[in-house]
Amino acid sequence: MDIRQLKYFVAVADARNFTRASEVLHIAQPPLSRQIQLLEEELGVQLILRNSRPLRLTEAGRTFYEQALQIINRLDQLKTATRQIGLNQQRTLSIGFVASTLYGGLPMLVRKLRQHYPDVDIQLVELTSQQQFAALTSGRIDVGFGRVRGNDATVARTILREERLVLALPPDSPLAGESSRIPFEAIHGQKLIVYPKEPRPSFADHVLSLLNDHAVRPAEIHEVREIQTALGLVAAASGICVIPASARLRSDVQYRLIDDPRITSPIIMSHRLNDTAWYIPALKEMVAAMYAENPPWLNVEHSVFPGIGAEPAVAPPVKTPRGRKKPGPV
């Protein structure tokens, strides 16, 4: 079975006559009849009642007609979309992200992209940081936003900011005092919940590495799949958890900023090495502009800006899809 046979069958079903269908298709009637016969033989069912005038479809024929029509239309859409992209009539931008970036700047960044580049089809794909590296190499995504530093030589990385980490505590924990800051060493001897359990390496490994660097030894480590589970267990007094400052999701948990500016989690933008596509400078421009606005989710006290600063610098003009030029920060 091939697409040609599907088109032949749809033409016969629409015309309800082999002669008229052959005229529409610009082929002789005998080969058209033969292709429909081969199709029925392959399926093992009769599709057309040939002894009626006009021709009628069997029950199986009606089902096959509906499905064949969808396949043909979908193929036409695929051809049109591919041609549009190839001719630069439509552009796509696939963005990979880790879930925790949704609590910070990613939603605002995507809104800005859609506002400034309305002709671009923006697709969001949830992937771990490690999965993003493979997806960039394969071309599945164009850019990724993650939290784990990788060592893939084919991927370029920009640290947008270092986000301070906080300790999530049960409300009745002795550590949940009035002070807004807590020493990292307070985790020593505590039951610690880390996430995600898999795939690895992940944010969990980043936290465990920080503990090891500071010779902090929890009494017990419990691994869970996602941050929502981790914070739920904290609320149930099953342990404590280290999370990014922007991910304070539950009101029944106490949060205390870790009193060490080195205890951070990076927000990293990754893209293919030597990629000179339009979206690289555009994204950097918008991230810097976004930070300069100091939105409510961006607590400057909880962030360090090693790469793209909070105050934007003027860069060369960037063309929008509509041909307008505007200066922007990088």
Rank of each mutant, 00 (worst) to 15 (best):
Y103E: 12
H188E: 15
R74P: 01
V143R: 10
F203G: 12
D205R: 03
K325F: 15
A245S: 15
E23C: 04
Y255I: 11
S270T: 14
P174A: 07
T276W: 01
A134F: 08
T82M: 05
P30R: 07
R225S: 09
S238P: 00
M1N: 04
P183D: 14
I27Y: 04
R114C: 09
P317H: 00
I267N: 13
A277E: 15
A235Q: 07
E40S: 07
V304G: 11
C241S: 13
A60G: 02
A134T: 11
S251E: 13
H302F: 07
V148L: 13
R62E: 15
Q90F: 00
R74W: 06
Q77T: 10
E285N: 01
I221L: 12
L25H: 04
E23D: 12
Y195W: 15
A28N: 14
E40T: 01
D2W: 02
G104R: 03
R200H: 07
N274C: 04
R157T: 15
V110N: 08
S179A: 14
E223L: 07
V253R: 02
D121C: 08
L167S: 07
L102D: 03
P266W: 06
P201H: 05
L298V: 03
C241T: 07
L257A: 14
L38K: 08
G309N: 01
L208A: 09
Q123S: 12
I95W: 06
R4E: 14
S33E: 12
I268P: 12
V194I: 15
Y8C: 11
L273G: 03
E185M: 03
S303K: 02
A134D: 13
E293S: 04
G177P: 07
L49A: 08
I308P: 01
D2M: 05
K319R: 15
P199C: 07
Q190V: 04
H222M: 10
S129N: 01
T58G: 01
V234F: 10
T19H: 13
S202L: 12
V143D: 07
I267H: 11
P317Y: 02
T19F: 10
V125E: 12
T82Y: 09
R20F: 05
S33I: 08
P30V: 09
I95F: 05
Q84K: 15
S265A: 13
D252I: 09
P174W: 03
L57Y: 06
K191G: 10
